[in-house]
């Protein structure tokens, strides 16, 4: 048995070099200026309350991710509920249909929304076609959300909705049916059964879903870049920009550290509410 423990050595070494050391390096770089001298300037620049350019970007990222998560929850919960009510054979197939789109490259799926949303895109062409049949008084206005915050929200909702539906669905199908029957036998109405029994029992799935949509939505830079255009940069865009364009790695690292701390705090907070066996297993 002693020898088996030796199997841990290669991985311990690997984890030390490729997981621990890189994170320490980010922290180290965040305290350096472009010449390599130690400094606090990177953090002072980020937390500059007299000219809060970067704090505003962070705030925008959190706000848009929050809106996207709320919409995902509002759209996703009823879907998960409907799915959980189907017979076990059918619901497996339908749940599979929610995972299927994720097998197509997400850059392409997001890019495809551009063809749909553009001023002369497919949705507006379709609206124009319908308007041809309608009297002039009830024309449908054309949809012009491309390169606005709402396009970013739409991209987030589109990409992360399955991550909200599946954990909730997984928890809902595991609810002990006898609890629901007991509540009904005791005279509770359908709405009351939902409010007092089903919803509280599904909360761990909701919490999982929230963490699995909110986290990637805060840190994305692709969706905002493709659909939001230049003026709706998020914290992810700003970090990417520092590394790939500006070349100020110190400042980019400092923003990464702030983001990392934010994520760890949120995850620590969420883990308290999350039961261990929820939707993650479905997706991973």
């Amino acid at each position: 048995m002693k020898k088996i423990k030796l199997a841990l050595i290669p991985y311990s070494a690997y984890a030390l070099i490729f997981i621990v050391a890189p994170i320490l390096l980010i922290v180290l770089y965040s305290f350096q200026d472009t010449s390599g001298a130690l400094t606090l300037d990177n953090y002072l620049r980020f937390f500059d309350f007299s000219d809060p350019v970067y704090l505003k970007v962070l705030w925008r990222s959190i706000r848009l991710a929050f809106i996207s998560t709320v919409i995902c929850l509002i759209l996703g919960y009823p879907m998960a509920y409907i799915l959980s009510k189907l017979s076990p054979r059918v619901r497996g197939t339908i749940a599979f249909l929610f995972i299927l789109p994720m097998w197509m490259n997400f850059l392409l799926r997001t890019y495809s929304w551009m063809s749909l949303l553009e001023r002369t895109g497919l949705i507006n062409t379709f609206i124009g076609w319908i308007n041809g049949f309608l009297p002039a008084a009830v024309q449908i206005p054309s949809l012009n959300i491309m390169y606005t915050q709402w396009a970013v929200v739409l991209g987030n909702v589109y990409n992360f909705l399955p991550f909200m539906i599946l954990p909730i669905y997984t928890v809902l199908i595991k609810i002990d049916q006898s609890l629901i029957e007991a509540a009904q036998d005791l005279g509770a109405s359908r709405g009351r059964v939902f409010r007092k029994v089903i919803f509280p029992l599904s909360l761990p799935g909701v919490v999982s879903g929230i963490s699995m949509t909110f986290m990637p939505a805060v840190t994305t830079f692709v969706i905002s870049r493709l659909l939001g255009g230049g003026q709706n940069a998020l914290i992810g865009d700003t970090i990417e920009n520092q590394f790939k364009v500006v070349g100020d790695w110190g400042f980019g690292s400092a923003m990464s550290v702030v983001l990392m701390i934010l994520i760890l705090i949120t995850m620590g907070f969420i883990r308290r509410f999350e039961s261990d066996k929820t939707g993650r297993s479905v997706l991973m």
């Binding site: 986290m215 992810g236 980019g252 990464s256 990392m260």
Partner: peptide, 21 residues
């Protein structure tokens, strides 16, 4: 706990940390 770090962390932070390494 160390193993779960790359899974919890944002991809962009993992990517940058490896770039620095």
């Amino acid at each position: 706990n160390i193993t779960s770090l790359p899974m919890i962390n944002a991809d962009i932070v993992t990517g940058i940390s490896l770039l620095l390494l």
